[in-house]
Design a protein around this nucleic acid. Structure first.
Length: 692
DNA sequence: TTTTGAAGTCTCTCC
DNA sequence: GACTTCAAAA
């Protein structure tokens, strides 16, 4: 066994196409049982790092070997990236035939099916997908129209309305129950919620808009009805495989049952200990009830961990043993040796940042590439200080997670131009873009939209609208721009990039006028253009960007494309399914991880614990948990407050770790632990090694 | 009616 | 610290 094989045990020798016997040979007994399982329902309970992906990939490969046609296999994953990765690995096993396997997220697959079959079910072609904030804006229109929220005391805001709506759709929990559970202060508004939702639904239909939840809902409805269309769709696939099953919700479970009406060839893989998406309606009931929904299901647990060293596993096993699990797993490994995870107390945030940077540079010097290291945190903003320091030191990194880019006002502005071209009835986008124009405010914008509605949204409606004198210039410029874009081809190489460039000739000046921090915003628009490069039609671009938002700044062609050795900064959520040689988990502070707002009820705290578990189990050889002892609290005025270590790192967990204090000189010493482990001043050790 | 300035409101995770 | 909402001035 080479060094490489020891460090990267998950990267097996997948090289050339081989026969079925060979395909199973590289797997352990449990993995092979799952991969070679014949037809019928199969539940794989796969603990962290147990070769779940490898098993799925081999199962796909073996199905293909058996002669199942690739386009009759559907592989549902959590991100586009993991679908691509799995199919690429399958290709190394069985060759290019695997390229025809259908793979993607539930939402992307729903989108594909609805574009193809939606019209037959009464969903007009050419619908536009709304993202979360679009849906919120539309909800706001309904709210305003019904005269709610004016004067009435504390009527819920649009985000809350949308959250309740989405939760109801995804979980089928009655609105009243959601309110009393999550928003007891709004229980009295139950009837109003219902009216807003009815209006919201009608608005979507009028405008031919579809939100994320609709994608799933329509898919479920399509396969649950009786009739030839449902038969056709549920007959599209002979085998369906689902990754990360613990993070699917009730609606998705309905979809799967609908898709498996004529067969039960459904393989689901999941780990109840890693369920971290309940805010999206995910429920581990799907895993627990799987044998009930699919009688005769085989259950295969994968318990041998190939990823982490024994000391890391000792730590994470202890952490998760505090949780209630239904499918108990005892993860073990043959990877003995290695150091205990570090628990690092830093004086404050800058000290924490210095520790992370110093230590990762040290590891880098020892030969660990940057791309084999990651820094994980609970929420996107927690890496701000670190990002500044990394930039200052010239260390390349990419940041995963968060949809900030698409949510940025200026990006949404530019997209609004494209969206009204694509869907003239999209009045949310019309309103947004009209409000941008000098001389046009709320009243004028609404007037223009009303006028267009009168003309049934015909393409020349905006040109025929008579603006007030003040708005003449803006109106003229806009008409000219839209006419020009409409006159262009509907499809051409680089079309979208060209259109964005044309929009920017008008928009960039507006941006400069309206926003501060102009330079980075203009850079964002450059990146938007770069992303659009691969699309030859607006419709494809707008759908793709809503369903598969760029995951990292790196995806946007940020920085140098030549840099292939980059550090990863990621939210714990976005790190799911990935692994690195060295992992830093920062801000392990009560109130940050777990987050303060999740402390309300036990279930949320348990989910935070699982999230911490997910973060820590990403590590192969080195794991560092850090927390700053003092935090400068801007809300409370000007005082430092003393942090409490995350409650998940209780005494038993700490016993599996080694404690380290950074900058002890200035710090309040950490809560005295009996038999304190050796204290090391890392800064002293590293001083002068990497510059100040 | 539009624009501008100031107070006020949250703070997350993602398809 | 960033964004929304509200109130007053142009």
């Amino acid at each position: 066994m080479t060094d490489d094989a020891r460090v990267y045990p998950q990267r097996p020798r997948e090289v050339e196409p081989r026969g079925p016997a060979d395909l199973a040979a590289g797997l352990n007994e449990a993995q092979a049982r799952a991969a070679t399982h014949p037809d019928g329902p199969l539940l794989v309970i796969a603990g962290a790092g147990t070769g779940k992906t490898r098993t799925l990939v081999h199962r796909v490969a073996l199905l293909l070997e058996r002669g199942i046609r690739p386009e009759r296999i559907l592989l549902l994953t959590f991100t586009r990236r993991s679908a691509q990765e799995m199919l690429a690995r399958a290709e190394r096993l069985v060759g290019s035939v695997s390229r025809s396997v259908h793979g993607g997220t539930f939402h992307a697959t729903a989108h594909r099916l609805l574009r193809r079959y939606g019209e037959a079910a009464g969903l007009p072609a050419g619908f536009t997908i709304m993202d979360q904030s679009d849906a919120g804006d539309l909800m706001q229109l309904s709210r305003a129209k019904l005269g709610l929220g004016e004067k009435k005391k504390r009527f819920p805001k649009k985000e809350t309305l949308h959250h309740v709506y989405s939760r109801h759709v995804n979980t089928e929990i009655p609105v009243a129950a959601i309110l009393s559970e999550e928003y007891p202060q709004f229980v009295e508004f139950e009837e109003e919620f219902g009216r807003v939702f009815a209006d919201y639904t009608a608005r979507k239909a009028e405008r031919n808009l579809v939100d994320y939840d609709d994608l799933l809902l329509f898919w479920a409805m399509l396969v649950e009805t009786d009739g030839p269309l449902a038969q056709r769709i549920s007959g599209l696939y002979d085998h369906i495989l689902v990754d990360e099953y613990q993070d699917t919700n009730h609606l998705q479970s309905r979809i799967l049952r609908g898709m498996c009406r004529t067969h039960a060839n459904l393989t689901v893989v999941g780990d109840d200990a890693q369920s971290i998406y309940s805010f999206r309606g995910a429920t581990i009931r799907n895993i627990l009830d799987f044998p009930h929904h699919f009688p005769g299901a085989a259950i295969v647990p994968l318990e041998e961990n190939y990823r982490s060293t024994q000391p890391i596993l000792d730590c994470t096993n202890t952490l998760i043993s505090r949780a209630e699990e239904r499918y108990t797993k005892n993860l073990y490994t043959h990877r003995t040796g290695g150091e205990k995870p570090w628990l690092v107390t830093a004086h404050d945030e800058p000290a924490q940042t210095r520790f992370v940077v110093d230590r990762l540079l040290e590891l880098h010097e020892e030969g660990v590439p940057l791309r084999e290291m990651a820094v994980l945190f609970r929420a996107g903003y927690m890496s701000a200080d670190l990002e500044i320091e990394l930039t200052a030191r010239g260390i390349p990194f990419e940041k995963w997670g968060g949809l900030k880019f698409l949510e940025a006002a200026h990006v949404k502005d530019v997209l609004a131009f494209l969206r009204v071209l694509e869907n003239p009835r999209d009045d949310v986008s019309w309103y947004r873009l009209l409000m941008l124009m000098p001389g046009i405010g709320d009243v004028t914008a609404r007037g223009a939209i009303d006028a267009m509605a009168q003309l049934a949204w015909s393409s020349d409606a905006f040109g025929r609208y008579q603006p007030p004198p003040r708005a003449r210039a803006a109106h003229g410029a806009l008409v000219e721009l839209l006419d020009q874009l409409r006159a262009g081809p509907a499809e051409a190489d680089g079309l979208v990039t060209h259109e964005i460039a044309r929009v920017r000739r008008l928009y960039d000046d507006i941006l400069r006028e309206r926003y501060d921090r102009v330079e980075p915003r203009l850079a964002d628009l450059d990146q938007l253009q770069t992303i659009s490069g691969g699309y030859s039609s607006r419709a494809a671009f707008l759908s793709a960007i809503a369903l598969e938002p760029p995951q990292a700044t790196q995806d946007l062609g940020f920085g140098s494309g030549s840099e292939d050795d980059t550090l990863v900064l990621s939210t714990a959520h976005s790190a799911k399914g990935r692994e690195w040689d060295a992992v830093f988990v920062i801000w392990a502070v009560d109130g940050y991880f777990p987050m303060a707002r999740a402390l309300g009820d036990d279930e949320q705290i348990e989910e935070e614990r699982r999230l911490m578990y997910v973060a820590m189990t990403r590590a192969r050889n080195h794991l560092f948990i850090t927390y700053p002892l003092n935090v400068y609290d801007t809300r409370r005025g000007s005082d430092y407050s003393i942090d409490q270590l995350s409650r998940f790192l209780d005494r038993g967990v700490r016993e599996t770790m080694q404690r380290v204090v950074v900058d002890a000189g200035e710090a309040t010493p950490p809560a005295a632990e009996p038999a304190a482990p050796p204290v090391v001043d890392l800064r002293a050790m590293l001083r002068g090694r990497f510059g100040a």
